[in-house]
Computed example of a mutant assay.
Amino acid sequence: MFSGIIEKMGRVVNIRLHQDGLYMVVKPTNGVMEVGEGESVAISGACLTVTGVMDKGFEVFISSETIERTWFKNLRVDLMVNIERPLKIGDGLSGHIVLGHIDDTGVVKQIINSGSLRELIIQTNRELMRFIVYKGSITIDGVSLTVKETSDDNFSVVLIPYTIANTTLGHLRVGDRVNIEVDAVARYINAMVGNGKEETEERGITISFLREHGFLEEN
């Protein structure tokens, strides 16, 4: 489990194809990062397994399924990625609960600079939008962010100067793809209410219950 607080950025220094995916070597850009073979690490939001440790870098394996679900199908040497090691018992949860399971990708449709802040408007599929809510949490390329606004097929987030300077989100351009993981809590609520369908009172939590207690807005 992760928190969406990026520890370092890294540079892709080698890619080796495999019949079931690919191996990628990442070199942190600012010092050495302690990771062990067999451990998990989040690379731009995707939970991957460390398959080797080398001088000032480490190797991870990316399965074909993960490649298909992420922007990793466009990986190339010299690309920058975000790195976060998993939480340990006793660590603070500065962001939100992040599983490292990418749901889909989105496309940066617009970038709006306002003083030192930067707003990203990201388009994704409508099916995923039902899990993305105003003021809710979302993970973009591994970074924990708060949703500013939503519409039928896009949402926006705002980057502060620290995030712009210390994550790959500061390098994004219009047209770039990003990895998206929706808030796990939103998924559980959706499952409990029957994928958005009105349920009987025996289910305990219903669409009516959530509206009544302020969890959902009236259309």
Rank of each mutant, 00 (worst) to 15 (best):
F2E: 04
G4Q: 04
I5N: 07
I6L: 06
I6W: 10
G10T: 07
V13T: 15
I15E: 04
R16A: 08
H18V: 01
Q19R: 10
D20P: 02
Y23W: 10
M24N: 02
M24P: 08
K27L: 08
V32Q: 13
M33L: 15
M33S: 07
S40P: 05
V41Q: 06
V41S: 04
A42L: 12
A46E: 11
L48V: 01
T51P: 12
V53A: 10
D55F: 06
K56V: 01
F58W: 12
E59L: 00
V60Y: 05
F61C: 12
F61N: 11
S63P: 13
S63F: 09
S63D: 04
S64A: 12
E65K: 05
T66D: 05
I67M: 15
R69Q: 15
T70M: 10
W71P: 00
W71N: 15
V77N: 14
L79M: 15
V81Y: 06
P86F: 11
K88A: 09
D91A: 08
G92Q: 11
L93C: 04
L93H: 00
L93P: 01
I97C: 13
V98M: 04
L99Q: 15
G100W: 06
D103T: 10
I111R: 01
I112A: 01
I112C: 03
I112H: 07
I112V: 14
S114G: 02
S114P: 00
R118W: 07
E119N: 03
L120W: 06
I122Q: 09
E127L: 06
E127V: 08
F131I: 14
S137N: 12
I140N: 11
G142L: 13
V143G: 02
V143E: 01
T150S: 02
T150H: 02
N154S: 15
V157Y: 09
Y162T: 07
N166L: 01
T167G: 08
L169E: 08
L172D: 05
R173V: 09
R177Q: 13
D183Q: 01
V185H: 11
A186I: 02
Y188D: 03
N190M: 15
M192S: 06
N195T: 02
N195K: 15
K197W: 14
K197L: 14
T200L: 03
T200K: 02
E201W: 01
R203Q: 05
R203N: 10
I207R: 04
I207F: 00
F209E: 00
R211G: 00
E212D: 10
E212L: 09
F215I: 00
E217W: 09
